[in-house]
């Protein structure tokens, strides 16, 4: 009746279709399995090559950040436990008590304990009213840079600060302050303005030291007085350092031994 002959007597093609459909099902299963694997691992192939544009990478980033936070809180918890145990031992024997006091002093110096005392608080903020463009280098002075914070920290140490923290991150021996794109990382933790730099020390000498002409704060005040705000505090509480304190390469040289002899072991 038409060009289409529907009464096709041998239907072998149905079986072939079935076979190919079976293979299609297999491929689909593989695709589904791989896709679920990718979403679980959170590191799918970045076909755009743009890390922050891909949802999976961003998810991994937040996951890792959460892990870091939980590990840091566990770390400080364990450190408190250790201190408690040390205190208990020290209460029993005199020698241990001396040792414990020395340990506490060392920990305090290293920034591994929460400390409180009089000091100052410096708040650094971007000059909000100003136009900032990369075309005009002078206009970049309206932003707080990592170098500014480093200089503030350095001047606080010169002025006699005993303990310093930036946005709740304790500054210790291994601390880093660096610029990563639009944010500044302190100890690897991203911080946003306003940057609050707190220091414990004699408040008046700290205040005077920070206010010396030609210092970093006076330079920033020249750009805009609104960028710097400094107050003396009766009591400043600084948190303990919560990062890694393990040394993997540096070893203590025993007293009286030639340091050169021990290297290379």
């Amino acid at each position: 009746m038409t060009v289409y002959s529907t009464g096709f007597h041998h239907r072998s093609y149905i079986w072939q279709l079935t076979l190919v459909s079976f293979v299609l099902g297999l491929i689909l299963a593989a695709t589904i399995q791989t896709a679920s694997q990718v979403s679980r691992a959170g590191n799918g192939p970045d076909r755009e090559g743009f890390v922050f544009g891909s949802g999976s990478s961003a998810a991994m980033f937040t996951d890792l950040n959460k892990q870091i936070h939980s590990l840091q809180s566990e770390n400080s918890h364990l450190r408190r436990n250790t201190q408690k145990l040390n205190d208990q031992i020290a209460n029993r024997t005199g020698a241990a008590s001396t040792l414990n006091q020395e340990l506490l002093d060392a920990q305090e110096f290293a920034g591994l304990t929460e400390v409180a005392g009089p000091g100052i608080q410096v708040t650094l903020n971007d000059n909000s009213g100003a136009q900032v463009s990369t075309a005009n280098p002078v206009s970049l002075n309206n932003l707080v840079h990592d170098a500014d914070i480093m200089e503030v920290v350095n001047e606080m140490k010169i002025s006699g600060a005993e303990a310093i923290a930036v946005n709740g991150q304790r500054i210790v021996n291994s601390s880093t302050i660096r610029c990563v794109g639009p944010v500044i990382q302190v100890n690897g933790v991203p911080c946003a303005p306003p940057y609050i730099v707190q220091a414990i020390g004699e408040p008046d000498s700290l205040y005077g030291g920070m206010n010396l002409p030609g210092g970093i704060l006076s330079q920033m005040s020249q750009t805009s007085p609104s960028m710097v705000h400094m107050v003396k505090e009766k009591k400043v509480i600084l948190p303990a350092f919560s990062g890694d304190t393990q040394f993997h390469y540096a070893h203590i040289v025993p007293v009286g031994q030639d340091p050169l002899a021990s290297t290379g072991s």
Binding site: I14, T18, S21, F22, G25, L28, A29, Q33
Partner: peptide, 12 residues
């Protein structure tokens, strides 16, 4: 063919 595909999916 449809049941073939579902079978393949299941086996896969």
């Amino acid at each position: 063919p449809i049941s073939g595909m579902i079978l393949g999916l299941g086996v896969g």
